[in-house]
């Protein structure tokens, strides 16, 4: 509605061509932004990109340190969530069912721990922001403040 009012006022003052261009611009920007799955880290993590292989090993808890020597703190959503499946298959390129079983084996053979489960995006952002060495992922329209987005590098 606001866009229409602005258009009518602008038409009155500037003519139809310019207002038409402005209306088109407003229309484009008034469309909902497309959410995008992104890997985020705490600002203390000093890398710019990560490969799916490294990501999969971090989430399998096989790699527990960043190249700087800092401990990795891994956060994830529930294995039942859609965003988890999207992350594992599309970004980390591992099969959800295999990662789940791997985590079960880690816990119940005493070899290690599994990523900490987070229930919603805001909590994920908060945990990654406040935990040195943290890594997580979100399905978001924009990069939240005080966390860094990692580029996903070459598959291998």
């Amino acid at each position: 509605m606001n866009a229409i009012l602005i258009f009518l006022r602008l038409k009155h003052y500037t003519g139809s061509l310019l207002s038409g261009l402005l209306l088109f611009t407003i229309f484009i920007y008034s469309q909902p932004l497309k959410a995008e799955l992104m890997v985020i880290v705490n600002p203390s993590v000093k890398i710019e990109s990560i490969s799916p292989v490294t990501l999969s090993r971090i989430y399998a808890m096989q790699s527990r340190k960043w190249p700087s020597g800092q401990a990795v703190k891994v956060f994830t959503f529930s294995p039942e969530s859609e965003v988890f499946e999207k992350f594992t298959v599309d970004i980390a390129r591992v099969q959800t069912h295999q990662l789940n079983r791997h985590w079960n084996r880690l816990v119940f053979t005493g070899k290690g721990r599994v990523p900490i489960q987070i229930s919603n995006t805001q909590e994920m952002i908060h945990k990654v922001r406040s935990t040195p060495g943290a890594i997580g992922y979100i399905d978001s329209e924009s990069i939240p403040k005080s966390v860094r987005r990692l580029k996903i590098g070459e598959p291998r």
Partner: peptide, 18 residues
């Protein structure tokens, strides 16, 4: 006392979900 990781499943043979 640690689980013997023989093969793919020995260590997790008693775990229903694995």
């Amino acid at each position: 006392r640690y689980k013997n990781e023989f093969g793919l499943y020995n260590a997790s043979r008693d775990l229903p979900m694995a």
